[in-house]
Design a binder for these strands. Structure first.
Lengths: 115, 115
DNA sequence: CAGTATCCTATCGGATACTG
DNA sequence: CAGTATCCGATAGGATACTG
C-alpha cells in the first residue's frame, strides 16, 4: 500500500491539486460555479479582474482535475457552459466555506491590521 | 453603511485577504500551525519545498493580517516561535477542511483524471 | 538559529490581435 | 461568443552569501 496523501510533501500529487484549487482564479471560479452554471462570458464578468487567457487556462485545469464540466453547444454563435461535477461540488463547498469566512470576518481582520 | 465584503470585486479588501490565505505557501503555513506552534526551522522542514525567503515573506504577511503571532525569545542562539492567533485558528480550520478533503479524495480525483 | 540582502531565472499574468 | 496566439512586463521564487 502506498503512503497516505500528504500536502506537506512536495512530491505528493495532492500538493498539485491543492495548488490548482487554491490558485488565484481557481478559488473564484469554483465559488462562482457553486452558485450556478455559467457561460464563459458570464464568468468573465462575474470574476472581476480575470483576463480571458487566465480564465480559459484555469477552467482547463479544473476540467482536467475533474472538478468542472465543459459543455459546448453546436450553435452559431457558439455557446459553452461550465458547471461543477459532483467532485467539484464537494471541493467548492470547502472553498466556499473559506470564502464566506473571509467575507464575514473581514471587519475583524481589518481591525487587527490597523493595530 | 458600506457594501458587504465581496471577493468577486477586485477592489474589495476581502480579495486581498483571500489571496494571502490561499497563497501557495500561506495555505501550508496555516495548516502546519493548526497542529501546533512551530519554530522557523521546524516550519521550513515541515513544509517541503519552501525557501527561507518565501517562508519569511509568507509569515510576515500572515502576521500583518493578524493570523499569526510571532514571538522572539532574547536568547543565544535566537529562538522564534510562530503560532496562530484566535483569528488565525478560525481561518486555519477552514483551510484545514479543504486540505483534508483533498488528501482524503485524491484517489477519486486521480481516477477521473485518468479518464 | 533566524533571518536579511542580492542576484537571477522562471512562471504568472495582462494587453492585444486574430479565428471558427 | 468563445476562445487561441503572441508579446512582454511584473512578480514569484530559488541559490547563495552574509549578519545579529
Amino acid at each position: 500500500m502506498k503512503h497516505a496523501p500528504d500536502v506537506f510533501n512536495a512530491q505528493c500529487p495532492s500538493r498539485e491539486v491543492l495548488t490548482h484549487v487554491t490558485s488565484k482564479w481557481g478559488v473564484l471560479v469554483l465559488a462562482a460555479l457553486a452558485d450556478r452554471t455559467h457561460r464563459f462570458s458570464e464568468l468573465r464578468r462575474r470574476i472581476d479582474g480575470v483576463s480571458e487567457k487566465m480564465l480559459a487556462q484555469t477552467l482547463a485545469v479544473l476540467e482536467t482535475d475533474g472538478f468542472v464540466l465543459r459543455t459546448a453547444y453546436p450553435e452559431v454563435p457558439p455557446r459553452v457552459e461550465y458547471q461543477l461535477t459532483p467532485l467539484g461540488r464537494e471541493v467548492a463547498r470547502k472553498v466556499g466555506g473559506l470564502v464566506e469566512w473571509i467575507e464575514g470576518n473581514l471587519a475583524r481582520v481589518e481591525k487587527v491590521r490597523a493595530a
